[in-house]
Simulated assay, not measured.
Amino acid sequence: MKLRKILVLLLIVSAVFTACEKDDGGPEITPLRDATEVYEEDLEDIETYLQTHFYNYEEFQENSPYSLENDAFRIVFDTIAGDNADKTPLKDMVDFKIVPFDGIDYKLYYLKVREGLGDVVHFSDQATLFYEGSSTIDNYVFDGVVNEEQFNLLTVGSSSGVVPGFQQALIEFKTSDSYSTEDDGPISYHNHGIGAVFIPSKLGFFNSALQGVPNYTPVIFKFNLYRRAILDHDEDGIPTFMEDRDENGDAYDDDTNGNFTPDFLDNDDDGDGYFTKDELEYGEYTIMVGDPEPVFAENEFEGSRTENNGVITIKTVIVTDRDGDGIPDYLDIDTIPEI
């Protein structure tokens, strides 16, 4: 089952209690388990896994980190035992971050085999990647792909993003900085991020049982992160990641004009009656694959990027402040666009 399909199922069932049968044959509602209690169990399970498992780091270290040979590297986990008793445990190799979610600060461990040399990934981007999802119980693989797939990292409306733990790990990595093809074969990406994340169940699928994996189970995602596309969900000219004004990773709590529609879904952010896209300026750059990146002005940001036969077209957004009051025109109700 693909990750996208799993997430659609999660959206459907996450608000519904699990039903079982009473002795008299009627349905009985089983309440959700306490999230704090589950997290304590999850953290113990994850840290035990990290202490008792290793990854094939020696295979990766045979070559320099950003060698062509390592571009095709895949992470493999195994137990520290027998012939592998002297291996370095994952616990000594992982990083972690604290992720606040639903009133709990979660410790999210991630393995950064290689950060990547390409573009940073924003919480609201679309990512192209190879991945495999497995259980911390027995390494049972419940999901994965053969070829790369695209996923939106932010859930909007009825669309499904990735689970929060996966999203929070991916933004710690960068994409590839180049690619190549041979004889019309598949694309080979170079110098991309390679890693894994160990996700407490609340940042994953929580009470939604996966095929072969019980509910309330921590999960692992291994991934190779190839590309990202910057998304502008309301098509107002401002990329969604820029509409997270307080930079807390939550675009839903930014509502400049107070109309109960977050800025990233509002095409008139300041409520002055003029479309946001008309209160911006725009630029465009053309380069060839492998050329140095253009240097943007301080108030200029990449809005989109396309590639056709080796020619890269980069369109930019230029945020103006014509009255010099420190408030961008598109957020300043006192400044109207020049017609």
Results as ranks from 00 to 15, higher is better:
F166P: 07
V13K: 11
G324T: 08
I287E: 01
I194C: 02
D23P: 00
G193M: 06
P100Q: 05
D291E: 13
I80C: 07
L111K: 05
T286P: 00
N139S: 10
P89C: 04
D254K: 12
R322T: 13
V197G: 00
D329L: 11
D34Q: 10
S134W: 00
R74Q: 13
F130W: 10
V219E: 06
F123E: 08
D250S: 12
E149W: 04
T276Q: 09
E115P: 00
F123G: 01
H233F: 15
V213Y: 03
P27F: 14
S67H: 10
L154G: 01
I98R: 08
L111D: 02
S135I: 04
I12E: 12
G195F: 01
E28S: 12
E37N: 13
Q211C: 00
E40R: 15
E300S: 03
Y330G: 07
D42Y: 10
F296P: 10
E281N: 15
P186V: 07
E47A: 07
S208W: 10
V121T: 05
D323C: 01
S201K: 04
E62P: 04
D138S: 00
N191F: 02
E338K: 13
A209M: 07
T36M: 10
D236L: 11
F123Y: 14
Y131E: 00
T128E: 09
K2Q: 06
F60G: 02
V156A: 05
G116R: 02
G25C: 06
E302I: 13
M93I: 02
E115G: 06
M1T: 11
A127L: 04
D325K: 00
D266G: 12
Y285W: 14
E69K: 13
G144N: 04
V94G: 05
E132Y: 08
D177T: 03
E293A: 14
P292G: 08
E47C: 06
S159F: 15
T306C: 08
D266S: 15
K107G: 01
A15R: 14
V162R: 01
D254R: 11
G212K: 02
D143L: 03
P27W: 11
Q51I: 06
D92R: 08
K87A: 11
N267I: 14
A15N: 15
G161E: 02
I220W: 05
P65Q: 01
N191I: 06
L3G: 02
E293V: 10
E281F: 15
N309S: 15
H122Q: 12
G273D: 11
E300Y: 13
T181F: 08
I104Y: 07
A169Q: 05
N309E: 14
P100F: 09
G25A: 06
E28G: 10
V8W: 10
Q61R: 15
E247S: 12
D105C: 07
F223Q: 04
Q150Y: 14
K2V: 02
G118E: 07
N84D: 01
Y106G: 02
T261Y: 13
Q51F: 13
K5D: 14
Y110N: 05
T52M: 04
D278P: 03
G303K: 13
S176L: 06
E62A: 14
A209R: 03
D125R: 03
